[in-house]
Write a protein that binds this DNA or RNA. Structure first.
Lengths: 203, 203
DNA sequence: GTGGTTTAGTAATGGCCATTATGAAAAAGG
DNA sequence: CCTTTTTCATAATGGCCATTACTAAACCAC
């Protein structure tokens, strides 16, 4: 029993996600969030708890809704296709929405006050989880002979993530999608292989 | 005439630089800055103006004192050496000081409140200036035949910067120097050349 | 209907933020 | 020594921050 909620919690979360994406965790004020959600302050608090909890919910949703290209990539047949899919998808995502460029996982908190430390750590953990999946995928590729025996899955995973993070920084700085794709192409240009590398496949 | 300043302005600036490096522009409070500088609030204001001006001074000093490997790199004989020097120097810088890892130019502001927009733009401009120098250096390398005719100086410069920014993100996340060097090495393995890339031998 | 329960909206609360007014202390010129 | 000028340090100022009382309204069970 009791009164029904008059706003759509999912829509409010989406609105908050966009604000956090644009301004980061500390740069987004509760005034920004409530305005974007079209909801009064206490309503957001009652629905999500506090700002940190709201951010964590937004981050979960971000991985689920926007970083879905990572699980997709991991299922591709070759390590090179995995890397290419991740890099080109990142180039797209980081420039897709002019009002919130870059990556929530990077924009969220890179450096901030001590109060933001738990959130910063959560973002680090989330990125580390993705990198670990990627490393495991490359280890499998090595075992399958898809990557040469000299390949270093750990370094390759860190490299793909680094390029992706760098593209996020550049996307937030206003780089065009084409420019980020050129970065992705360069990163892939001589993927380790037993055969001589072919130049840019992928859409 | 008048009373002499009792603190070393350069030392105060160095202290502020470290705080900004660690916490970013918005994450660093004036309380943090004055404590680190060992100087009372009004003294910092009288010496530097306001927080934004202090940050800009710190940023200038950062490029002058810590990013000096860029002008160094530009004078090396080959494009590959230029890129290698930048990437390995970045790997070192971003992990050199445990108390302020990553890069001030990235940690400063990636995303923030509207109030931080001028500072964010200043950082974007500073990075763009470095990238432009790099692109010009690669154009020269292409003209000199050091880079193949198919090479794209613009993409190469953006790529080197992206990897460098990615390493900054990873450095701030606690990656070791060795791991960042592995990323640098991987990035350089994609470097264009007229010779066919060395193949990885089968075991 | 009526009582119990949940939400909505207004308007506070205390805290930290950048910035500065105020006046004492110190140095230099005359 | 006294005046002028600059710096120092304490302590304020107003604003924005996240968070929440509080009151009124809406809903359900009975």
């Amino acid at each position: 029993m009791g009164r029904h909620r008059e706003f759509d919690v999912e829509k409010a979360l989406d609105a908050a996600l966009c604000v956090f994406w644009r301004k980061g965790y500390e740069g987004a004020s509760y005034a920004d969030l409530t305005e974007a959600a079209g909801v009064e302050r206490p309503a957001l608090y009652s629905a999500f708890g506090n700002k940190e909890a709201l951010f964590r919910r937004a981050l979960d949703r971000y991985y689920e809704r926007y970083m879905d290209f990572i699980p997709e990539a991991l299922q591709l047949p070759t390590a090179r296709e995995v890397a290419a899919h991740i890099l080109y998808s990142a180039a797209d995502l980081h420039t897709r929405y002019p009002s919130h460029t870059g990556c929530l996982g990077i924009n969220g908190v890179l450096a901030g006050s001590d109060e933001a430390e738990p959130v910063r750590q959560a973002l680090i953990d989330a990125r580390a989880a993705g990198e670990a999946q990627l490393r495991e995928r490359f280890e499998r590729a090595k075992a399958e002979g898809d990557l040469p025996g000299t390949a270093n899955p750990d370094a390759l995973a860190a490299f793909v993530m680094a390029v992706s993070h760098g593209m996020a920084v550049q996307g937030k700085a206003g780089f065009s999608r084409g420019r980020l794709e050129a970065v992705a192409e360069q990163a892939l240009s001589t993927w380790p292989s037993d055969r001589t590398p072919e130049l840019h496949p992928e859409p």
